[in-house]
Structures are given as C-alpha cells and as structure tokens.
Design a protein around this nucleic acid. Structure first.
Length: 253
DNA sequence: AACGATCTCAACCGCCCAACG
DNA sequence: CCGTTGGGCGGTTGAGATCGT
C-alpha cells in the first residue's frame, strides 16, 4: 500500500474539530486508529499531541500564576525534567507547556535561586512563604479574553458543548487546593508518587461533541463501543465540514 | 516607522516501555 | 519468550509575536 505522507505543521480549526469529534467518539487512547478513521492525514502521535496539549477540555491557558511557578520550581528541583510528572501536579497544565515555561522563565529563576544565598532551599523569590500562597483562586482565573475555538480549552463555544468545561474544571480543581498538592508532594517525595490530580482525568474529558453520546472514556474501556472491530459507522466527514465553516460545527447525520 | 534581537509556544523527532499476539 | 506495535515522554526546532533601539 502506498501510504500518503502524513500532514505536518500547524493544525487548522477544521482539523481540530475533526479530531475533537473523533476523540469524542473513540476515546483518547487509540490514536493511530483515530488518525486513520478521522480522515485527518496526520500521524497518531500528532493527533495525540494536539489533543493533549491543546484540545483537551481540561486545559488552562494563560500565564502561570505565582503559585504554579512556585510549584514548578519546587517540583523541578525535586524531580528534574520529568515534565509529565510535574504536569500531573498542576491541574490543567500540560507537560509541554510546563517544559516551555521552564525553558523561558524558570531556568533563569532557578539559576538566580541557586546563586542567591538563600538560607532555606525551599524558599526563594517566587516560592516565598505559604502566607504568600493564598488560594487556588488565582489559578482559576487565568482565562484570556480570546474567544476562539482554541482558547476555550476545547470546542466549547462553537459547538454544542459546554462552556462549562472550564467552570467544571474549576470546581474540581477547587476541590483540590495547592495546599493539598504540596502535602501530597511532601508525602510522596520521590518514590511512590501518586498522581493526586490528573489533569487528563476522565472527569475533565466529558465535553460534549456533536454525535457524542457519552463521555469519551466509556469507549476507551471498550464497553459500549466494540472498537476492536473496526467501526463501520463512519459518517462522511464532509457532511459536517461545510457546516463547520459556518461555525455550526454540527454533524448532520 | 523600520529593523534586528529576543521571547514564546506549537509541533515534530527519536527513544523507551508496556501491551499484545 | 520474542517480535511487533502503539503510546508516552523528554528534547529540540522553527515560525510568529513582541520588544528595544
């Protein structure tokens, strides 16, 4: 079989939407499969990356808060470049985001921190004291003003789904404060680290997409959808693409 | 206003590991 | 047990945005 070369480069909104829909249908596990059936001429890896780093409904966007900075700094000093591990402690942030952030901001700070003759290693210009570490609230309010398909952390406003994703996330995040995270870190300290909050958790995944009947992970656990058999329920993608362009984004099956 | 320098971040690459047949 | 395959992870790159002169 002559495989067409997979597309590379920036994703279009249309591609994003297709991906979101197919992840909604088939879950966020079978990336190769999704890449194939979605008609996106992308690799499974590319799809996964796009989803994880950009389209996942639980994602926060916008600047890191001081609390997050502090956490990153501390965790990095503890774990090094284990970005995904660090990301698990930061609700709504991805490993890629943290990695980038570290490279640009934190490296400087960490260097300063090293150089600075600070009495206790766990306090620094940005880590400071817990009294400076009020609530998670500031974490919840990082949304930028942009209202695009992207910035909602998912297909929120354009499709039927929800703009409540972020709010819902906020709630669940609220349920888990930074204090808790710190405690958890202190407890786990090194070995048996238990991801206490996983930004990619099932709960954060229940955005709704046209045609989606249930939360994505349902499929992943191959209960409802026998995805082991190649599904034959494909609808012609181009049925919704035109609609999408008019921002309708509905699959008119 | 124009230009160069610097920063930011989305995306790709390659390696590794676990699951599966 | 071994080979294959898919997914996850960390590192790197490059285009676009922003800043400074």
């Amino acid at each position: 079989m002559v495989q067409e070369e997979a597309r590379k480069g920036p994703w279009t909104e249309q591609e994003d939407f297709q991906l979101v829909c197919f992840v909604g249908l088939f879950g966020d596990r079978r990336w190769d499969f999704i890449a194939k059936v979605s008609g996106l001429n992308r690799t499974g890896k590319s799809c996964r990356l796009r989803w994880v780093n950009y389209l996942h409904p639980g994602l926060k966007r916008g600047k890191m808060t001081p609390q997050e900075e502090r956490l990153v700094l501390d965790l990095h000093s503890k774990w090094g470049n284990r970005w995904s591990r660090i990301a698990r402690k930061l609700p709504g942030r991805t490993d890629n985001e943290i990695k980038n952030y570290w490279r640009t901001h934190m490296r400087k700070k960490a260097q300063e921190r090293k150089r600075a003759p600070s009495p206790s290693s766990s306090s620094s210009n940005i880590s400071s004291s817990p009294s400076n570490n009020p609530t998670v609230d500031s974490l919840m309010t990082q949304e930028t003003g942009k209202e695009s398909f992207y910035d909602t952390g998912g297909p929120g406003d354009k499709s039927t789904s929800t703009g409540k994703n972020i709010e819902e996330q906020g709630k669940s995040e609220n349920a888990y404060s930074f204090d808790d995270i710190w405690k958890e870190i202190a407890l786990s300290d090194g070995d048996g680290i238990i991801p206490v909050y996983n930004g990619y958790s099932e709960e954060s995944c229940n955005f709704s997409c046209p045609l989606m009947a249930s939360p994505t992970r349902e499929y992943g656990s191959d209960s409802l959808w026998q995805i082991n058999e190649e599904p034959k329920i494909f609808f012609p993608i181009d049925q919704f693409i035109p609609d999408y362009e008019h921002e309708g984004a509905y699959i008119t099956g």
